[in-house]
């Protein structure tokens, strides 16, 4: 009985793994197909589509644009999120704290399309033109809740004596924060930062509604898909996939190393 249930659960797990990986692997494979026509079976293979990605200046500049947006919005989210986390962590008895905390998490529970539309309307009201800064701003709004959650979790484990010791040794509150609190937060900031990078780089709906004429990478793939599937899109998507997977795995590894250090 016990062995049966274990076997069933193991099957469920591996079936789930297959479900997650097979579509992506097929997509990667299809990028090597020597035909303009998407579909199986694949009879002959080529590298042409992948080489094409690196020759296509539009695609390359879109990569750069997406990366720029991801970096800018991540920096912004980290700064704002840390600020709010510091506030929420320092004044635990402040009467409006739960309200501020709830509002901080609000963008995380608003469904994507509604978030994008409300931000689109708001950008219009504020006079922010659709484009780079509108997207950066919308991504920052969406990412701040995650940064706050991660940073506050770490901040709450900082012994108060750490900053007190810095003050005691002659540091004013600002220097104490920069020289003691920020190094302590480093793992949380790195983890949250990578999460933000991925969220921003992968985001479609906000970039779509707040973008100007220049598409981000997901928007480019989306619009090209509208005019039909082609192995070229597979190649672009695969390069994006490899990029995000590398960042993700690297993040996971560094997070785990830090967790180990923490436990030691």
């Amino acid at each position: 009985m016990k062995r049966n249930s274990r076997a069933f659960l193991a099957c469920a797990y591996w079936a789930f793994v297959v479900y997650l990986f097979v579509p992506l692997m097929l997509m990667v494979m299809m990028g090597f197909k020597d035909s303009k026509f998407i579909g199986f079976p694949i009879r002959s293979w080529t590298l042409e589509w992948y080489l094409g990605v690196f020759r296509d200046t539009e695609v390359l500049s879109v990569f750069g644009y997406s990366l720029l947006i991801a970096i800018l919005s991540t920096v912004l989210s980290l700064a704002i999120g840390t600020w709010i986390a510091a506030f929420l962590n320092s004044y635990r008895t402040f009467p409006g704290r739960m309200l501020v905390f709830g509002l901080t998490l609000l963008p995380a529970v608003v469904p994507g399309i509604i978030s994008a539309i409300s931000l689109r309307i708001y950008a219009r009201v504020l006079g922010i033109e659709p484009g780079l800064w509108a997207i950066v701003w919308s991504h920052a709004v969406h990412n701040v809740p995650f940064v706050v959650l991660v940073v506050i979790a770490r901040l709450s484990t900082l012994p108060p004596s750490q900053t007190e010791a810095a003050r005691d040794l002659g540091a004013d509150p600002l220097i104490a924060f920069i020289r003691v609190t920020v190094p302590y937060l480093r793992p949380a900031l790195i983890g949250a930062g990578i999460f933000c990078l991925l969220l921003s780089f992968d985001d479609f709906v906000r970039s779509f509604f707040l973008g100007g004429y220049d598409p981000t990478l997901p928007v480019l793939i989306f619009t090209r898909l509208h005019s039909g599937m082609s192995p070229e899109i597979n190649a672009i998507a695969t390069v994006a996939l490899v990029l995000t997977a590398i960042v993700g795995i690297w993040a996971e590894r560094s997070m785990r190393r830090m967790r180990k250090e923490q436990n030691a």
């Binding site: 789930f16 793994v17 997650l20 990986f21 097979v22 579509p23 992506l24 097929l26 997509m27 299809m30 026509f37 998407i38 579909g39 199986f40 991925l198 780089f201 992968d202 985001d203 479609f204 709906v205 990478l217 997901p218 793939i221 989306f222 898909l225 599937m229 899109i233 597979n234 998507a237 994006a240 996939l241 995000t244 997977a245 960042v247 993700g248 795995i249 996971e252």
Partner: peptide, 24 residues
Amino acid sequence: LLIPFWVGEIVRTYAIMILLGNNG
């Protein structure tokens, strides 16, 4: 299990299109 989830919404949607198409 986490690895596929780092890949964006559009890319993964596209992967499903290839999986389920008439020639999928």
